[in-house]
């Protein structure tokens, strides 16, 4: 692939760890700047050396505080860390209060740590296409660990598995009984389960319920080489976080020695990323200002002279004829 001069310079700057370039490029990604695609293509091809860890769980579970403690452990072990922390945008004003960085303040002036907040800008599922693009940027830089922290999620937001190699699911005590633990969805996606706020009297019971849930499902797990561990933590004190870092390390090692599992997961991530990019391209066509044509067709769909299926097919056709 040819990389033009300007893109080449950016790839080089990012490869040498230039934080300002990184910050500016992520802003272009956030704005949805269409001119950035050629750069992202080059970065994707240059990247893939970082270990990407996803952290997800319900709001207020302590994800950001836990990430801050993880950074502390990783820094002690000599690793460089980048964090992409996503918080929700208002569906009404489009605005956001991004408060993840607040929990990670102790690392503010460490030049081996990069923290970037990102608003979800209306996407469901806890992550955005922009988050995927920002991860492509971070993954082309010399970070040992890249953490992506989702917005607080509910029962079924499993997007994180499309972006991270290893997923840490953070729960809290009192999240419900064993039937809640048995429900499908988010309970199924963790490589590692954390019960944070471990000083709560119900913490041990929650750990037990999660372990039961994991044991019962293990015979269905296509990856028999790994039984997800359940770790009790207290993120404000850092208790259990060394063990969490060890288990993350173990999982990466386990994936390295099980190339068929790692490859299946990597292929799945590529499939999802590609689908996400196609969706974004179609969405842009549907909303673009050169889409006068689209507007008239939409009117005819509203009037039931046409239908959304026909519109979808013609949109796809115009896209492929353009390429």
């Amino acid at each position: 692939m040819d990389v033009n001069g300007e893109d080449g310079a950016v790839v080089g700057a990012l490869g040498s760890g230039d934080i300002r370039t990184c910050a500016r490029i992520i802003s272009r990604v956030e704005r949805g700047d269409p001119g950035i695609v050629s750069l992202l293509r080059a970065l994707y091809r240059a990247g893939g050396c970082s270990r990407v860890v996803g952290v997800t769980g319900p709001p207020g579970a302590g994800k950001s505080s836990l990430v801050s403690q993880l950074i502390r452990v990783w820094r002690k072990r000599g690793l460089n860390v980048a964090v992409l922390a996503v918080d929700p945008s208002s569906p009404f004003s489009g605005g956001a209060v991004l408060g993840d960085r607040l929990r990670m303040a102790e690392h503010s002036c460490d030049d081996r740590v990069f923290i970037r907040s990102m608003a979800s800008r209306g996407q469901l599922g806890g992550l955005t296409k922009a988050a995927g693009d920002a991860l492509t940027v971070l993954d082309a830089m010399p970070w040992d660990m890249v953490v992506v922290e989702t917005v607080g999620v509910g029962q079924n937001e499993t997007d994180i598995i499309r972006h991270a190699e290893v997923v840490v699911l953070v729960q809290t005590p009192m999240g419900g009984d064993d039937i809640q633990a048995a429900k499908a969805g988010i309970n199924e996606i963790g490589d590692i389960y954390v019960v944070n706020k471990g000083d709560h009297p119900e913490a041990n019971r929650t750990c037990r319920q999660l372990r039961d849930m994991i044991t019962l499902g293990q015979h269905l797990n296509p990856d028999s080489s790994w039984t997800p561990p359940v770790i009790k933590t207290q993120s404000l004190l850092g208790e259990g976080v060394e063990e969490l870092a060890d288990q993350i390390e173990c999982r990466f090692e386990n994936l390295r020695t099980n190339p068929e599992v790692a490859s299946r997961r990597a292929r799945e991530r590529v499939r999802h990323r590609t689908a996400e990019i196609i969706r974004d391209m179609l969405d842009r066509r549907l909303r673009s200002e050169d889409g006068q044509l689209v507007e008239t067709v939409i009117d005819s769909v509203v009037a039931r002279e046409s239908d959304p299926y026909a519109l979808a097919e013609s949109l796809l056709a115009t896209m492929t004829s353009r390429v």
């Binding site: 605005g95 956001a96 209060v97 991004l98 607040l102």
Partner: peptide, 14 residues
């Protein structure tokens, strides 16, 4: 936030 800005809230003791 309600006016549509994205606010990065850093808190106290910065």
């Amino acid at each position: 936030r309600d006016a549509g800005f994205e606010v990065i809230y850093l808190g106290a003791t910065q």
